[in-house]
């Protein structure tokens, strides 16, 4: 009984630290990028939530924000970037194009980024207001605190218990890596 309480307190503390120090990787494609810039700008400051500066390398980031429409051509690149991130990692689908494809139902648009990566929080809106973005960030933080992000659940399932410390283990090579051809140099 005492050991479990000790464990859960550590887990809570670790999750608390994780949620307030998110290193974001903004995968910006389209119009939502403008609202992402606005939410990082002085008026709707993202920095006060701890998600201060974007880390422009997936190896250093733990929050993948998919901003804007994902096309079929972009799919392998997105998948690759997701695989290159270390765990635990979270994904936010910013905008309705990244959530479900938006009003683009055609031969080139992927109907939502969750076709290729598991998404934790969806932000609808075309583009979403910065207040929605902040609300989504708070929702994500609550999920992280409870340990319910997709990647946290997978880690716990694999380890058999709560994993207090980050498992620095990208999945470039492994059971979830992309099989077959990605965009080769042409």
């Amino acid at each position: 009984m005492g050991l479990e309480i000790y464990n859960s307190t550590v887990q809570a503390a670790v999750n608390w630290a994780r949620k307030f120090s998110l290193f974001q990787y903004p995968f910006v494609t389209a119009c939502c990028g403008m609202e992402f810039m606005s939410s990082a700008a002085p008026k709707y400051d993202l920095a006060r939530f701890g998600a201060e500066f974007p880390r422009f390398s997936p190896r250093q980031a733990d929050l993948l924000i998919i901003v804007g429409t994902i096309t079929e051509r972009q799919g392998p690149a997105l998948r690759r970037i997701y695989d290159q991130m270390c765990e635990p990692k979270w994904v936010v689908a910013f905008g309705v194009c990244a959530s479900t494809g938006g009003f683009y139902q055609n031969y080139s648009t992927m109907p939502g980024a969750d076709q290729v990566v598991p998404v934790d929080v969806y932000i609808p809106g075309c583009p979403p207001r910065p207040e929605q973005v902040l609300d989504a960030l708070i929702l994500l933080q609550e999920r992280i605190q409870r340990g319910e992000g997709h990647s946290q659940i997978v880690l716990k399932a694999e380890a058999g218990h709560d994993v207090p410390i980050a498992a620095i283990r990208p999945r470039d090579k492994g059971p979830h890596a992309v099989a077959g051809k990605t965009e080769g140099a042409k």
Partner: peptide, 12 residues
């Protein structure tokens, strides 16, 4: 190489 945001304006 462009075309990563081809959202088919003309077809739509």
């Amino acid at each position: 190489q462009i075309g990563y945001l081809h959202r088919c304006f003309e077809k739509e």
